[in-house]
Amino acid sequence: MASPNTSIDSNENLPSSLSRVPVMEAINVSKSFGAVNALIEASTSLYSGEVKAIVGDNGAGKSTFLKILSGLIQPDTGEMRFEGNPVKFEAPIQALNLGIQTVYQDLALIDTMTATQNVFVGREKLSPNPLLRAFRIVDDKEMTANAMGVLSELGIKIPSLKETVRKMSGGQRQCLAIARAMLFGHKLIILDEPTAALGVHESAQVLTVINKVREKGLAVVLVSHNMQHVFEISDSVLVMRLGKSIATKRTEDSSTQEIVGLITGAIAP
């Protein structure tokens, strides 16, 4: 397994030494809701094997940007590129089909369903038996095995896959949601405040999992308010302010003070 740092050889501002094509690119996208300009010509590029953190004050446009990346809403202007090709998402399902998965702040787990059912909701595997398949009978065994596989791959411990997720702790739920994203998003995983509402120990658990996802060679983008976590996990940081993407900094080259300064406007980009 490669060390996470070895893969960071690309920078937004410099052409990658490996001349890699970004998994996802947003170029000058804008979005307004009525009179409110939520996003003004924001741009970013996301590379596989990299974690990009998006930071900014409340109302800086982070959520809107995230929603555009995940295909939940469409930008008014600007261009989106997926692996170099322009794309236009009409519905989130298109993004899902391209291997882009989003883990929302409120987790998007269904309390009344089991862990396995949650992992596979909307993508249930059908039984291999053609007769059962014709009746759309699902293959729980296979799905449980798959879920188990991805969970152990990411080092996530969950009491039982057959229990409803209602009993799980916030950290376990977050990890499960990431595991689900990982299982289906083979290109890009978008995380909205993954460590909000979590304790120290649970946050650490989640960060470990994100690290594992990066090691698998996926692109990860996350929004966070927690500077400590951002610096712990990200490879680069996109700072947003008043709807604009004002700066992208390599995490190792930056500091908390600089980023906070950029967020508040104390430091000019």
């Binding site: 269904i110 059912q117 596979f120 009978i137 699902v138």
Partner: peptide
């Protein structure tokens, strides 16, 4: 059988269990 074992059953339970989550899962 439909509710516990088929795809439709899973989907209907998901929609009822958590509408937002079900929509986000593309149902």
């Amino acid at each position: 059988l439909i509710i516990s074992k088929t795809r439709y059953g899973r989907h209907i339970k998901a929609v009822g269990g958590d509408l937002t989550a079900a929509v986000r899962a593309g149902l």
